[in-house]
Amino acid sequence: WKVTVKGVEYTFDNPEEAKKFAEELAKKKGGQIHYKDGEFQVH
């Protein structure tokens, strides 16, 4: 499971962890999460 933040990729074994990480980042940066092709992208 991948989380991509401004072109930087983070990989997680667990989808729950990936989702949590993406949500935290989106909150911090005031961005939005897009889920696409099996990965979370924070913009």
Results as ranks from 00 to 15, higher is better:
residue 23 E to V: 09
residue 22 A to P: 00
residue 3 V to A: 01
residue 9 E to G: 06
residue 29 K to V: 15
residue 19 K to T: 05
residue 21 F to T: 01
residue 27 K to V: 11
residue 7 G to A: 04
residue 39 E to G: 06
residue 12 F to A: 00
residue 36 K to F: 12
residue 28 K to W: 11
residue 26 A to M: 05
residue 26 A to D: 02
residue 41 Q to P: 04
residue 1 W to K: 02
residue 28 K to I: 14
residue 2 K to T: 07
residue 9 E to S: 14
residue 16 E to C: 09
residue 34 H to C: 12
residue 11 T to C: 07
residue 37 D to E: 09
residue 43 H to M: 13
residue 19 K to I: 10
residue 28 K to Q: 13
residue 16 E to K: 10
residue 37 D to C: 04
residue 41 Q to G: 04
residue 38 G to T: 05
residue 15 P to C: 14
residue 16 E to V: 11
residue 20 K to E: 10
residue 20 K to G: 07
residue 16 E to M: 11
residue 12 F to P: 00
residue 6 K to L: 13
residue 15 P to A: 13
residue 23 E to P: 00
residue 31 G to Q: 06
residue 2 K to Y: 06
residue 38 G to S: 05
residue 16 E to H: 12
residue 22 A to N: 01
residue 9 E to R: 05
residue 15 P to W: 15
residue 29 K to G: 15
residue 18 A to N: 00
residue 43 H to S: 12
residue 43 H to P: 04
residue 4 T to G: 01
residue 5 V to C: 13
residue 16 E to Y: 13
residue 38 G to N: 12
residue 31 G to A: 09
residue 9 E to K: 08
residue 10 Y to D: 00
residue 10 Y to A: 01
residue 32 Q to V: 14
residue 19 K to S: 07
residue 34 H to K: 10
residue 42 V to H: 03
residue 8 V to S: 09
residue 31 G to K: 01
residue 31 G to E: 07
residue 18 A to C: 02
residue 3 V to Q: 00
residue 21 F to N: 00
residue 18 A to R: 00
residue 42 V to K: 02
residue 12 F to T: 00
residue 18 A to Q: 01
residue 17 E to K: 09
residue 12 F to M: 00
residue 4 T to Q: 04
residue 42 V to A: 03
residue 34 H to P: 03
residue 11 T to N: 12
residue 38 G to R: 13
residue 33 I to G: 03
residue 43 H to L: 14
residue 33 I to F: 06
residue 37 D to A: 04
residue 12 F to Q: 00
residue 35 Y to H: 05
residue 15 P to T: 05
residue 24 E to W: 13
residue 43 H to G: 08
residue 10 Y to Q: 01
residue 7 G to C: 05
residue 25 L to K: 04
residue 7 G to V: 01
residue 28 K to N: 13
residue 2 K to P: 01
residue 12 F to K: 00
residue 20 K to N: 10
residue 39 E to H: 12
residue 1 W to L: 04
residue 5 V to I: 14
residue 33 I to M: 06
residue 39 E to F: 04
residue 2 K to E: 01
residue 3 V to K: 00
residue 21 F to G: 00
residue 30 G to I: 01
residue 32 Q to S: 13
residue 27 K to A: 14
residue 38 G to F: 13
residue 40 F to I: 10
residue 39 E to K: 07
residue 27 K to Q: 13
residue 15 P to F: 15
residue 24 E to N: 07
residue 37 D to F: 02
residue 30 G to D: 07
residue 1 W to R: 01
residue 18 A to S: 01
residue 32 Q to T: 15
residue 4 T to N: 06
residue 13 D to R: 07
residue 18 A to K: 00
residue 4 T to L: 09
residue 34 H to Y: 14
residue 30 G to N: 09
residue 11 T to I: 14
residue 34 H to S: 14
residue 17 E to Q: 10
residue 42 V to I: 14
residue 34 H to R: 06
residue 17 E to F: 05
residue 27 K to I: 12
residue 17 E to L: 09
residue 30 G to H: 07
residue 43 H to D: 10
residue 5 V to N: 10
residue 33 I to W: 08
residue 13 D to L: 08
residue 35 Y to S: 03
residue 40 F to E: 03
residue 40 F to K: 02
residue 4 T to W: 08
residue 24 E to M: 10
residue 37 D to V: 03
residue 3 V to P: 01
residue 34 H to A: 11
residue 17 E to P: 02
residue 35 Y to L: 07
residue 42 V to N: 03
residue 37 D to M: 01
residue 4 T to H: 06
residue 14 N to V: 04
residue 30 G to V: 03
residue 2 K to L: 10
residue 7 G to I: 02
residue 14 N to Y: 07
residue 5 V to Q: 05
residue 21 F to I: 02
residue 3 V to M: 01
residue 25 L to E: 12
residue 6 K to R: 10
residue 18 A to D: 00
residue 29 K to E: 15
residue 22 A to L: 05
residue 13 D to H: 09
residue 13 D to N: 10
residue 11 T to L: 15
residue 7 G to W: 04
residue 16 E to I: 12
residue 33 I to A: 05
residue 31 G to N: 06
residue 43 H to Q: 10
residue 21 F to E: 00
residue 20 K to Y: 09
residue 6 K to E: 15
residue 36 K to T: 10
residue 33 I to T: 05
residue 37 D to G: 04
residue 7 G to N: 09
residue 42 V to G: 03
residue 14 N to M: 05
residue 26 A to G: 02
residue 29 K to H: 15
residue 17 E to G: 06
residue 28 K to E: 14
residue 22 A to R: 02
residue 8 V to F: 14
residue 24 E to H: 09
residue 13 D to Y: 07
residue 2 K to A: 04
residue 6 K to S: 14
residue 7 G to Q: 05
residue 10 Y to N: 00
residue 14 N to I: 04
residue 4 T to R: 06
residue 37 D to N: 08
residue 36 K to Y: 11
residue 10 Y to I: 05
residue 13 D to S: 11
residue 35 Y to M: 06
residue 35 Y to V: 07
residue 3 V to L: 01
residue 9 E to T: 14
residue 15 P to D: 05
residue 26 A to K: 05
residue 14 N to S: 12
residue 35 Y to Q: 05
residue 32 Q to F: 14
residue 26 A to H: 03
residue 33 I to C: 13
residue 7 G to D: 12
residue 21 F to S: 00
residue 14 N to C: 09
residue 37 D to T: 03
residue 39 E to Q: 09
residue 23 E to L: 09
residue 35 Y to F: 12
residue 40 F to A: 03
residue 1 W to H: 06
residue 10 Y to W: 14
residue 4 T to D: 02
residue 1 W to Q: 02
residue 25 L to F: 08
residue 17 E to V: 09
residue 22 A to T: 02
residue 19 K to F: 13
residue 17 E to C: 04
residue 24 E to R: 08
residue 25 L to C: 09
residue 5 V to G: 06
residue 5 V to E: 14
residue 29 K to P: 10
residue 1 W to E: 01
residue 38 G to Q: 10
residue 20 K to F: 09
residue 17 E to I: 08
residue 10 Y to E: 01
residue 6 K to W: 12
residue 19 K to D: 02
residue 14 N to W: 05
residue 28 K to Y: 12
residue 40 F to T: 03
residue 38 G to L: 06
residue 28 K to R: 07
residue 26 A to W: 04
residue 27 K to F: 13
residue 39 E to I: 14
residue 9 E to L: 08
residue 27 K to R: 13
residue 12 F to H: 00
residue 34 H to L: 13
residue 23 E to Q: 08
residue 17 E to T: 10
residue 7 G to T: 06
residue 1 W to I: 07
residue 43 H to K: 09
residue 24 E to V: 07
residue 14 N to D: 11
residue 41 Q to I: 14
residue 23 E to I: 10
residue 10 Y to P: 00
residue 31 G to R: 00
residue 18 A to E: 00
residue 42 V to E: 03
residue 5 V to Y: 15
residue 23 E to D: 08
residue 6 K to N: 15
residue 29 K to Y: 15
residue 9 E to V: 13
residue 35 Y to I: 09
residue 8 V to I: 12
residue 6 K to H: 14
residue 39 E to W: 07
residue 24 E to K: 08
residue 9 E to H: 09
residue 26 A to F: 03
residue 18 A to Y: 02
residue 37 D to Q: 05
residue 18 A to H: 01
residue 41 Q to T: 13
residue 40 F to Y: 12
residue 20 K to R: 12
residue 16 E to F: 11
residue 33 I to P: 03
residue 39 E to D: 07
residue 17 E to H: 08
residue 20 K to Q: 12
residue 6 K to Y: 15
residue 1 W to T: 07
residue 40 F to C: 08
residue 41 Q to R: 08
residue 14 N to P: 00
residue 18 A to F: 04
residue 17 E to W: 04
residue 41 Q to W: 09
residue 29 K to T: 15
residue 2 K to F: 05
residue 22 A to S: 04
residue 19 K to N: 05
residue 41 Q to Y: 09
residue 12 F to C: 02
residue 36 K to H: 12
residue 43 H to W: 10
residue 12 F to D: 00
residue 28 K to H: 11
residue 25 L to N: 04
residue 15 P to I: 15
residue 22 A to C: 06
residue 14 N to R: 08
residue 29 K to N: 15
residue 2 K to M: 06
residue 40 F to W: 15
residue 28 K to A: 10
residue 32 Q to D: 08
residue 30 G to E: 05
residue 18 A to P: 00
residue 40 F to N: 03
residue 24 E to G: 06
residue 15 P to N: 07
residue 7 G to M: 02
residue 9 E to P: 03
residue 42 V to T: 04
residue 1 W to M: 04
residue 4 T to F: 07
residue 39 E to V: 14
residue 36 K to E: 10
residue 40 F to M: 05
residue 6 K to T: 13
residue 1 W to F: 08
residue 13 D to A: 10
residue 10 Y to H: 05
residue 2 K to I: 10
residue 39 E to A: 08
residue 2 K to Q: 05
residue 25 L to R: 02
residue 13 D to G: 09
residue 20 K to H: 11
residue 43 H to Y: 12
residue 8 V to G: 09
residue 14 N to H: 09
residue 37 D to H: 04
residue 11 T to H: 14
residue 38 G to D: 06
residue 3 V to D: 01
residue 9 E to Y: 09
residue 24 E to C: 08
residue 43 H to F: 12
residue 5 V to H: 15
residue 33 I to Q: 03
residue 22 A to I: 05
residue 42 V to Q: 03
residue 27 K to S: 13
residue 11 T to K: 13
residue 10 Y to M: 03
residue 38 G to H: 14
residue 7 G to L: 04
residue 25 L to D: 03
residue 14 N to L: 06
residue 34 H to D: 09
residue 38 G to E: 05
residue 33 I to V: 15
residue 18 A to M: 04
residue 25 L to G: 02
residue 21 F to P: 00
residue 13 D to Q: 09
residue 16 E to N: 10
residue 32 Q to G: 05
residue 33 I to R: 00
residue 15 P to E: 14
residue 33 I to S: 04
residue 24 E to I: 08
residue 4 T to Y: 07
residue 21 F to H: 02
residue 33 I to L: 08
residue 28 K to S: 12
residue 10 Y to V: 04
residue 30 G to Y: 05
residue 37 D to R: 01
residue 35 Y to G: 04
residue 27 K to M: 12
residue 22 A to G: 02
residue 27 K to L: 14
residue 22 A to W: 03
residue 25 L to Y: 12
residue 37 D to P: 10
residue 13 D to I: 07
residue 23 E to G: 03
residue 4 T to V: 13
residue 27 K to D: 12
residue 1 W to N: 04
residue 35 Y to P: 01
residue 24 E to L: 10
residue 23 E to R: 05
residue 38 G to P: 05
residue 10 Y to L: 03
residue 33 I to E: 03
residue 30 G to W: 05
residue 38 G to C: 08
residue 4 T to A: 04
residue 13 D to P: 10
residue 41 Q to N: 08
residue 31 G to S: 07
residue 15 P to H: 15
residue 17 E to A: 12
residue 3 V to W: 01
